[in-house]
Simulated scan of single mutants.
Amino acid sequence: MSILPPPRRRWSWLTALWIGVPVLTTVVPLVIVAVFVLPMVTGALSVFTPLAPGETRAPPACNQALRAYADGSVYASAVGCLPMGFPEDLPLIEGPILTASSYTTAESSSWSAEIRIDDPDVALAAVRDSLEHAGFVETTRTDATLEKGIRFDSPLYMVWVETSTTAWGPAVSYTYNPAPPAPPS
């Protein structure tokens, strides 16, 4: 029996190959596929990819969600269509609906919709015509560099309409709220 300690195992190039080759041939490609290839194939990163000038994306398919709260309020949201409970009498221009929502409480409701457009100036003119035809009156206007907005009022509703650039291209956004009660006379 020897009183010497057992010999230390030394790493050699064969040991490194025995461990390194499987790691390089299995783990590294799996990481590359998971991080780069799968998001490109599934389109997960396409919403975050900037659009080239004049490029637009197809609007999303209709997908709705409804959430009721303990206080009795209800929030409905939709992508690609109008949500359940969205009033049919609210004027909207023609075009693919990107997102829309409605929020209802015991006291009030509000609705919003975002519609893809081709030209912001032409769309705002069409919005103005449709709202004025429905009895709305223009009360406020902003002409910022990137976004243009107009507020319209009617006896029942007030609406803020603005243009913006979204992941799907240029869009017009509507936000409808009930008109505030008239002050007591």
Rank of each mutant, 00 (worst) to 15 (best):
T105R: 01
T165I: 10
T140M: 15
R67I: 07
R151N: 13
R128N: 09
H133G: 03
E55A: 15
G72K: 07
F136R: 07
L156A: 14
A52C: 07
L146D: 06
E94N: 10
I93M: 13
K148F: 01
C81F: 03
T139E: 11
H133N: 10
M158N: 11
Y75M: 14
T105G: 01
A134G: 08
D118W: 00
R57W: 04
V74K: 10
A113T: 12
V79N: 11
V74Y: 01
D143N: 14
S101R: 10
S112V: 04
E88L: 07
P96G: 10
L124G: 08
S130Y: 02
P53R: 13
A134P: 05
L131M: 15
E147N: 06
C81S: 05
I117D: 04
Y157R: 14
A123H: 04
P83K: 06
S108N: 02
F136D: 05
I93Y: 06
R128Y: 01
V79A: 12
W111G: 01
T56N: 08
N63E: 11
E55D: 15
E147S: 09
C62Y: 05
A65C: 02
T142I: 09
P120Y: 01
A100W: 06
A70I: 10
E114L: 09
A100G: 03
Y103G: 02
T166S: 15
D119H: 11
A78K: 02
V122H: 04
L82T: 12
L66S: 14
T142D: 08
L51D: 02
P155F: 01
S130E: 13
S101C: 00
H133A: 12
P83D: 03
A58S: 12
F86L: 09
T140Q: 13
P83M: 05
A134V: 09
T139G: 03
S110Q: 10
L156Q: 15
A76R: 09
G54Q: 14
E94W: 01
C81R: 06
A65H: 03
E107A: 14
T163P: 00
T105V: 02
T145Y: 00
D121W: 02
T140S: 11
D71R: 08
L90A: 08
T163M: 07
A65K: 06
I117W: 04
L66N: 11
G72A: 07
S164G: 13
T104Q: 06
G135A: 11
G95V: 12
V74N: 04
S109R: 08
A76W: 00
T104L: 10
R141S: 10
I115K: 03
A68Q: 13
L90Y: 06
S101D: 12
L90P: 00
M84H: 00
E107K: 07
K148D: 09
S109K: 03
L146V: 07
I97N: 11
R67V: 09
A78C: 03
A52V: 08
L124T: 01
E138S: 12
E88A: 12
S77T: 14
